[in-house]
Amino acid sequence: MSEENKYKINVNRQEPSNEELKKFKNFNKVISKHRSITKRPAYKRKRTYFLLLIILLLTYLIFLSEKETLKEEKGLPQTEQTPKIK
């Protein structure tokens, strides 16, 4: 073909067989590329907020139980085991 030609024209080129096509087929490659492109940032995920809520809830529960323990310790009569406060 000369340089003036607009297109590259192939005549009677052989078509690939079905076996050849099967070698190229790879859905996992497509899906992993898609996931890497469309991965949502953490702040947009529901799961992040759910985990944050659980952490806050646990912290609050620990805080409450600590408060309760402190109250109990203050209210208890002093025994031989409990150190005397000077």
């Binding site: 297109y7 024209i9 192939n10 005549v11 009677n12």
Partner: peptide, 9 residues
């Protein structure tokens, strides 16, 4: 590149 066209007889 030049676009490819594949033709048959």
């Amino acid at each position: 590149k030049k676009r490819t066209i594949n033709i048959k007889d």
